[in-house]
Design a protein around this nucleic acid. Structure first.
Length: 226
DNA sequence: CAGATCACCTGCTTGC
DNA sequence: TGCAAGCAGGTGATCT
C-alpha cells in the first residue's frame, strides 16, 4: 500500500476534511461522513469489529477506521487535487467580511448556502440549524435578502456555536465517538436540532421540523420569520 | 443557476 | 412478534 512505512509529519483539518501528511510526500485524506470513526487502540482487536474498513498500524498502536453507513472516505493522494483547493475556507477562520462576501456570492436559501462546502468548510446540518436559530433567521430565507446586521449576528453565532461544540467534543446523537471512544456532549446544548414538537427555549412556541435543502431542518416559526 | 430528486449504505425507531 | 416505513452528524450526479 502507498502509505506502508511512511511517517505522519503533520495532521491538518479544513472543515470536515482531515489530512495526514506523510514524510515521503502525499497525504492520507479522511472524511467521516455520517457515521465514520477513527479509533485508537494500543493493540488491534482480533477478529476485527463490524464495519472496520481500514487499519493503520503504528509503532505505538493501531488506528482503525469504522463506518457503518460507508459515506465516509479514506484515500491516499500523492498531491492535492484541484477539487479540494476549490472548497471554502474553514468556517472557524473566516472574518466577517469574508463571511458576508462568500455568502452574498451565492443565491438561494440560506440553509443550502451554509451547507455548501464550496462556500465555507465545516458547517453541517446540526450547526446550521443551531446558528440560524441563534441569529433568528428562517432557514428558507433568500441569502441575498439578509441584512448586514443579521449577517453579523449569524457570523457571531456561527463562531460561538462551533467553538463551544468543539470544546464539548461534538454532538453525539447516536454513535459518534472520538479517537479514544468518548462521545461528545454538545447534543445537550442543542436548542432546536432534533427538538421537533418541543417548546422553543426562547419563546415557548413549538419547534417545527421541515425539509429544506433535502435535509431535516429544525426551527422556531415564531422566532425565525420567513 | 436554483432546487428537486435520487443515489450511495446500514441500523435504529416507530407504527400498524 | 413481525414487517414496512421513516429517519439519521454527508455529498455528488442528474434532471428540470
Amino acid at each position: 500500500m502507498a502509505v506502508t512505512g511512511a511517517t505522519i509529519v503533520a495532521v491538518r483539518r479544513r472543515g470536515k476534511q482531515i489530512f495526514f501528511e506523510l514524510d515521503r510526500g502525499g497525504f492520507l485524506y479522511v472524511h467521516l461522513g455520517m457515521t465514520g470513526k477513527l479509533l485508537w487502540d494500543s493493540a488491534a482487536s482480533e477478529p476485527l469489529e463490524k464495519h472496520v474498513h481500514a487499519v493503520f498500524e503504528f509503532a505505538e498502536g493501531v488506528l482503525r477506521y469504522q463506518d457503518a453507513r460507508q459515506f465516509g472516505r479514506v484515500e491516499f493522494y500523492p498531491e492535492m487535487p484541484e477539487a479540494f483547493e476549490l472548497r471554502g475556507p474553514d468556517a472557524l477562520g473566516v472574518d466577517f467580511e469574508t463571511f458576508v462576501s462568500r455568502l452574498k456570492a451565492r443565491r438561494g436559501q440560506v440553509k443550502a448556502v451554509l451547507l455548501n462546502q464550496a462556500v465555507l468548510s465545516g458547517l453541517g446540518n446540526i450547526y446550521v440549524d443551531e446558528m440560524l436559530f441563534a441569529a433568528r433567521v428562517h432557514p428558507r430565507t433568500n441569502v441575498q435578502r439578509i441584512s448586514k446586521q443579521r449577517a453579523r449576528l449569524m457570523h457571531q453565532s456561527m463562531l460561538e456555536i462551533l467553538t463551544l461544540a468543539i470544546a464539548r467534543k461534538g454532538s453525539s446523537i447516536s454513535d459518534y465517538v472520538d479517537a479514544t471512544g468518548a462521545p461528545g456532549s454538545y447534543q445537550h446544548q442543542h436548542q432546536v436540532y432534533g427538538k421537533a414538537g418541543e417548546p422553543c427555549p426562547r419563546c415557548g412556541g413549538a419547534i417545527r421540523r421541515v425539509v429544506v435543502a433535502q435535509r431535516g431542518t429544525h426551527y422556531c416559526p415564531r422566532c425565525q420569520r420567513a
